[in-house]
Design a protein around this nucleic acid. Structure first.
Length: 568
RNA sequence: CGGGGUGUAGCGCAGCCUGGUAGCGCACCGCAAUGGGGUUGCGGGGGUCGGAGGUUCAAAUCCUCUCACCCCGACCA
């Protein structure tokens, strides 16, 4: 490709509404352009990378035995009513009408449609297992689209759905998809981890998310430092551990703390650490009531864990100051776990604390050296979020926390959809049997953004080789003036193309500095610079841009150049 | 949805408080010089100032309504 005819359109300045690095770089390189909130056009440069991601995913899916098909993006409401999701899905589902006022939605996912296909197509257990997939545009009307392509409303997804006679068969395919996803992200050149994920209300035995590791990731992942345990912090459990300090219990004191309301203020005033304090959070109960949650001062409540506990309103809602006053007759800031006039749930770690500091349930006072009256009768649960340094839930090693971008999610669905839509086959005995399903998604457009989040420097993108829009930049110095440079470049350009190398030839009449800056910004992994100076010596210049360390410029002979290009 | 913010040329912004008929940088077009890290000089083109209504002799600027976009949203006990 010649730059003169490629519409290379780079920006020197960062568009003001781009917060994250991938969004900034995708706009500055001209990979994408925004149409409206959460919706982007893929420009020719960006589309090249997007297609590369798609093709690798497609190849690996095909290798796994999955079959590609393509379903409509617009779906009739009837199917969604049948599965019950027309009511459940909420405003994230974009609903539309046709000219006859018939209801439709723009597909955010395709369980209903694929299950409808399968219930018509698949009649016998002999046709199972089968795994269908597609690569297609989805629309989810996110409350707050942000971060450009990372959390867009319209995006490209690879979604696969497998069908099985039984759970055992599902588990086999699930493992195949787990392996396939690992191959895909490895081939894409991304640093990733498969982590245990919330299997949620849908049920099923297992669910894994695939995360690309990047500091800007929206999810936090807990890793063990000495086993392969990895889980989203949202669900990493903490087990009860009765490791009391066995210190002698001290005499409880009531201390005046007229202005100290926060843990930080109380700690400063009483000269204690947050880990010696207990804080009490008041949340709404399912009934018209409140529930108190007690945690150590240095621990954070995990809302997902709390929501799952019986009696607590879902979604988790904190009581307002007024509600706390009216139901408990206590001023927020001085709440403690002792003698509370409501149900109390204590986190495991708080339940084993001794001689702790907490609110006195009396305005202006805290207790020091407080102790549970009878710790064995406490209702203690796993309430808190796992932290760096905590013991790993699998019992091996300690937890480290890294940030990740969720690019894939695999799921054992069970029979939720096949049951609702009555997708059944005849088994060996001629008996009708509801099929069991798995589903497997990859955010294709998000993969491209995540690759940038993981691979960039101050000059721009550093593409993994397999995602780069072009492999080689061919940059002539002063080609307008030098017939020799021009002739050489034109020939080299043709030769590289003949070798099957994707080369972008900067034939614009611009100064070298601008060429270097542009090609670094768009992240081309190999750069060849051709000048009179070098040609005189029979050499050209080569520089790679394949990792974050700055690479030395090499002077290489023209023969070696072609070899070098071919090797990559 | 609640809170905050911003809409002025393709992009980044100034002008608004104190009304007087729109400006800067990048990008774009032309000419020239330059020719190994977004070079320089000269000359250009492009904006009904998000929209509607109002106040006024006069509105980007003041008032009302509206639309769009962006940011934040238990972390306190």
């Amino acid at each position: 490709m010649r730059v003169s005819s490629f519409h290379l359109s780079t920006l020197k300045e960062i568009p003001s509404d781009a917060e994250v690095i991938s969004h900034q770089l995708m706009l500055r390189t001209g990979m994408i352009r925004k149409l409206t909130s959460g919706m982007y056009s893929w420009m020719p440069l960006g589309l090249r990378s997007l297609r590369k991601a798609e093709n690798i995913i497609r190849e690996e899916m095909n290798k796994s035995g999955a079959l590609e098909l393509l379903m409509p993006s617009v779906q009739p409401a009837e199917l969604w009513q049948e599965s019950g999701r027309w009511e459940q899905y909420g405003p994230e589902l974009l609903r539309l009408h046709d000219r006859h006022q018939r209801e439709f939605c723009y597909g955010p996912t395709h369980e209903e449609v694929i299950t409808d296909i399968v219930r018509h197509e698949i009649r016998s257990y002999k046709q199972l297992p089968i795994n269908f997939y597609q690569i297609q545009t989805k629309f989810r009307d996110e409350i707050r689209p942000r971060f450009g392509i990372m959390r867009a409303r319209e995006f490209i997804m690879k979604d696969a759905y497998s069908f099985h006679e039984n759970q055992e068969c599902l588990e086999k395919t699930y493992q195949v998809m787990h392996d396939t996803y690992s191959s895909i992200f490895t081939r894409l050149g991304l640093e990733f981890r498969a982590v245990q994920a919330d299997s949620g209300a849908i049920g099923g035995n297992s669910s894994h998310e695939f995360h690309v590791l990047a500091d800007s990731g929206e999810d936090a992942i807990a890793f063990s430092d000495s086993s392969d345990y990895a889980a989203n912090v949202e669900l990493a459990p903490l087990h009860f551990n009765d490791n009391k300090t066995k210190q002698p219990l001290s005499e409880q004191e009531k201390i005046s703390t007229p202005t100290q309301k926060t843990i930080e203020e109380v700690c400063t005033a009483l000269k204690v650490t947050p880990s010696m304090c207990i804080k009490v959070l008041i949340v709404k109960a399912e009934e018209d009531d409140v529930i108190a949650l007690a945690l150590r001062g240095d621990h954070e409540l995990n809302t997902i864990k709390a929501e799952k506990l019986e009696g607590i309103a879902s979604p988790l809602t904190f009581a307002s100051d007024e509600e706390i006053r009216s139901s408990l007759d206590i001023t927020p800031g001085f709440i403690g776990p002792m003698n509370l006039n409501c149900r109390l749930i204590v986190d495991h770690a708080a339940a084993v604390l001794e001689n702790f500091v907490c609110g006195a349930n009396e305005t202006g006072f805290h207790l020091k050296n407080a102790n549970w009256d009878n710790s064995s009768t406490l209702d203690h649960q796993d309430l808190r979020e796992i932290q760096e340094g905590d013991p790993s839930p699998d019992g091996q090693g300690h937890i480290q926390i890294k940030r990740g971008i969720e690019v894939g999610h695999i799921f054992q669905l069970g029979d939720k959809y096949s049951h609702a839509l009555n997708a059944a086959v005849l088994d060996k005995n001629g008996k009708e049997k509801i099929v069991t399903m798995g589903c497997y998604g990859i955010g294709v457009s998000r993969v491209v953004a995540a690759a940038i989040e993981q691979n960039y420097d101050e000059h721009g993108i550093i593409w993994p080789l397999k995602l780069a829009p072009f492999q080689v930049s061919l940059l002539p110095i002063n080609m307008e003036k030098s017939e020799q440079v021009k002739t050489f470049c034109e020939k080299l350009y043709k030769d590289l193309i003949e070798c099957g190398i994707e080369v972008i030839f900067d034939d614009r009449n611009v100064r070298p500095g601008q060429m270097f800056a542009d090609h670094e910004l768009i992240g081309i992994p190999h750069r060849i610079v051709v000048s009179d100076r070098g040609l005189k010596a029979g050499t050209v210049e080569y520089k790679s841009r394949t990792d974050k360390q700055s690479q030395d410029i090499e002077t290489i002979s023209i023969k070696d150049l072609i070899l070098k290009a071919l090797l990559n």
